[in-house]
Nucleic acid binder design. Structure first.
Lengths: 192, 192
DNA sequence: CTCATTTTGTACCTCAAATTCAAGAACGGG
DNA sequence: CCCGTTCTTGAATTTGAGGTACAAAATGAG
């Protein structure tokens, strides 16, 4: 019973995610959110409690969306190294083409809140774990097919690839061209 | 002529750097700076103009300090790969041991301001250029001594090492242990 | 000493961030 | 159709960020 909500909370979280992703946590004001979600301040706080809580939901939404996207990319067909190369280049191109230079919301959150907000740090860590795991699985597949030296530690290579992506996406925030990312990708893949 | 300053601007910038480094740009208030520098607000604004200008000077100071430190590390004696390993491990350990999880001020700035502040982005880009150059020089030295495969592109390897450092230091913001950084370092060096 | 110049500390101002609240609107149950 | 509940709107509240104004204080030149 009671008056039904006049907006879809899922849509609202999605839009909030876009705003937080573009502007960061601190730089996003309740007014920005009100404008983007198209609801009143009262509804905002009634539905989500606080800016901080809404941010957490937005970050979880980001995580869920990214998890799907990454798995899709890595599970495509073809040689493992080619899949890796395509995935890394796609990331770099997206970051470069994005006029807002948004980069990766998890990376941005790590930088902005990681030191002071343990809940946010934990969420980001888990996203990193997940990505590392996906890369590790791909490396192991490559080792089974003989594309990647089976003597190397798959977990370490997974960490390396995660770290590479983090670096690439951080650089996307100040990117001035495709050359450096391309060199990074070349060097990483040559080192596998 | 005129009344002399009762504080050393260089010391003030140094302290401002510490504050900005610890808290980030947006989260640092003029009051924080006044407290840390031990001067009045009037002096602060008289000497530095604005929070933004002071930040830029603090960032330049960080750059100058880091440049020296990195060169010292990379110019030490011994095999190139050992120097690299020591340098990377030292960074990782510093980040882990730092109770404030400050990470790297350039990386933090890239994440926080890179998208919106072109001047800050340019400063960070130059710092990245410089670091990449230092790594490249070290790689070329390793290639001359035969420690590193001379067939590989030194510039790409420099980019890779820069990217590795960026990733490591970003992860330092949410670090929960030494394992992942250690794996990254192992994998990177094995791939050289 | 006096003047022009610069620094300093305090008080003040403006604006907006983040949240709360009051008044009412839209439901469903009995 | 009344009632309790939940949602909505937007103004009010509180707090502090970021900066300005100004008079007093400290200097060197002449």
């Amino acid at each position: 019973m009671g008056r039904p909500k006049q907006f879809d909370p899922d849509v609202a979280v999605e839009r909030a995610m876009e705003v937080f992703w573009s502007k960061g946590y601190a730089a996003t004001t309740p007014q920005d959110l009100v404008d983007a979600l198209g609801i009143g301040k009262g509804s905002l706080y009634n539905a989500f409690g606080s800016k901080r809580e809404l941010f957490e939901r937005a970050l979880c939404r980001y995580r869920d969306g990214q998890a799907v996207a990454l798995v899709e990319l890595l599970e495509a067909g073809g040689p493992v190294k080619e899949r890796l190369r395509r995935t890394l280049h796609l990331l770099a191109e997206m970051d470069l083409a994005d006029p807002g230079h948004r980069g990766c919301m998890a990376v941005n959150t790590a930088a902005e809140l990681g030191a002071e907000d343990e809940r946010a740090a934990e969420l980001v860590r888990r996203m990193f774990d997940r990505t590392e795991g996906a890369f590790r699985a791909l490396v192991e597949e490559g080792q089974r097919t003989g594309e990647i030296n089976a003597g190397r530690d798959a977990r370490s290579l997974g960490s390396l690839l995660l770290n590479t992506v983090i670096g690439l996406r951080l650089m996307g925030r100040v990117a001035d061209g495709p050359d450096r990312p391309a060199r990074v990708i070349d060097a990483v893949l040559d080192g596998l």
